[in-house]
Design a protein around this nucleic acid. Sequence first.
DNA 1: ATATTCAAGGAAAACGTTTAACTCCCTTCA
DNA 2: TGAAGGGAGTTAAACGTTTTCCTTGAATAT
Lengths: 332, 332
Amino acid sequence: MGINIFDIAKEAEVSIATVSKVVNNTGRISDKTRKKVLEIIEKHNYTPNSLATALTGKFSYTLGLIIPNLANPFFGEIAKSVEDRARELGFSVMICSTDYDADREASYFTLLQKKRVDGVIILSGFEDQQTITRNLVKPNMPVALIARDIPTISINSVSIDDFVGGYEAAKHLIGLGHRRMGLIVENIRCAKERVRGFNQALEEHDLQLDESLVLLGEATVPNGKKLALQLLSGDEPPTAIFATNDLLAIGTIQAANEHGLKVPQDVSVIGFDNTMLATITDPPLTTIAQPMEQMGRQIVDLLVQELKGDVTHKQRIVLLPELVVRKSTGLR
Amino acid sequence: MGINIFDIAKEAEVSIATVSKVVNNTGRISDKTRKKVLEIIEKHNYTPNSLATALTGKFSYTLGLIIPNLANPFFGEIAKSVEDRARELGFSVMICSTDYDADREASYFTLLQKKRVDGVIILSGFEDQQTITRNLVKPNMPVALIARDIPTISINSVSIDDFVGGYEAAKHLIGLGHRRMGLIVENIRCAKERVRGFNQALEEHDLQLDESLVLLGEATVPNGKKLALQLLSGDEPPTAIFATNDLLAIGTIQAANEHGLKVPQDVSVIGFDNTMLATITDPPLTTIAQPMEQMGRQIVDLLVQELKGDVTHKQRIVLLPELVVRKSTGLR
DNA sequence: ATATTCAAGGAAAACGTTTAACTCCCTTCA
DNA sequence: TGAAGGGAGTTAAACGTTTTCCTTGAATAT
């Protein structure tokens, strides 16, 4: 179909080896020949077929990114930073959105293997991260984890200290005088870590979580609203609610409004992630910030290091989340 | 590195052609041989190298998507739907986020050609859509446009009728009794179409736009806020503001709040896009909805049809936007 | 004048598939 | 008994590169 190296070689009256050398700036080619070849390349708008290049060479210069849902701003920001950094390093990214479907997550992994990507970054949507654990038994390709972690296996990862995140959230609320808190928790391991951290802070202040105020569910705004409504209509409602991500927190604010409660006067709400959403709610959301951009960049660096063989030891990078105080939390 | 078809063939004591036929379910192979081959494939976890497959075959089964910024929910939703539909049709997607950088947009186009994607979907971030117009002079690959349109060239596209969108927005505001309106306009062609439509409705009601109330700028929340503040602090501020996308509209709501004005009592705000953001602002945003999911799916269908040679005539599909009334607009 | 070195470029193998054409060999049928 | 037919599998070319030797001819050194 398209023009290929033979066509160029023929028209320039040189061998394909010469063309290849001109294109890649390798070998020794006289200025005259180089110029002639370049002219013809220009004329036909020739670009080497990377499929063929990848087939001969060691790398395809393509990375895979498996992520639950691109339409979710948290994942979108991660995807963007991964793509940006990959590009800086000369890699393209094949992005795969699983829609929280475990089969799809697994089949994407296989697909990416077929496509001979040089490595895969996974942000699993599942508690047990099935894809990874299943596939890491016989990993024929570098894999790295972002924003999630599996403590038991040796794998490059960049994530945050979820425990500290939860701890900070609780500390903030306790500092504001809250004693009775509700939790809305996404059903994944890292969210549970956040709850553990939250509990730790509570214990240090001789407080105890009322287990009936801990609700689990899927991370969407409507679901956050539903669960928060449940929390707020109880006999003894909490004065503050910690939601393990911004979407749930936003649902919580909506629930409060609907229930006739003012945020933060009647009930404080604190989220997790610090996506752009946190800045546009009313009131703007106090939340625990994850460094999404940094995570994306660092995991790409780690993965590329690994696949280039630069580094022997795998790394587990743990970034620290930070409290961002806005207007959704206030004094008891 | 990995295991290949030769290894399988050798261990199964058959030729590589046989292995290939087993894998692809082509040709005639006895059940016995098939079973043996499959066993060995299973044992070694063999998957054919798609680079090689793509090299021999007609397709790479990969599409490219060039888009301004994945972190923006509008683009995220589009990217998701494109990816979803592509997957259903057996294609992977290479997503390229240009960050509104014209050079990057162009270089991504070249990159995708090199990678031998079967086709490219472009959502250009630029007024003149440089990449496309420049590259469509000699297009060696199917290209399709989403959410943007170039009236002068023959190319598959799915977009909305921006004129009607603007018209609907104006009609809504006029119906609520507004007579003096401000506009915050993104600097791209489609946004200007929206303004044209807006004007049309105005004219039909013998109203005229005060040109001093039409402000242009980049589509971000902070910028929307800045421009809206400008609008609202004028001598004779508008009673309603039409922003050509949700981000700008959200900035406008923030500006109103900051300026001590209530939305919608003191000033009405209407946006464009209907991203998830519109549901989480306070008040929830009245906006003109674009069918992002449908656009994504349809453009993939069109592109795949084109590259498979199913259809001869290119299509320009124009979807109609719809007014979604929420709480940010009210009676004058 | 001959040997040595070096710059410039070419030949061919390798990467991992698919596929058209072909070869066997076993049935079937007249 | 021999021809025809068809099932099962093989051979080899093709896809478009990169890269490792080679070859050639000219310049330089002795």
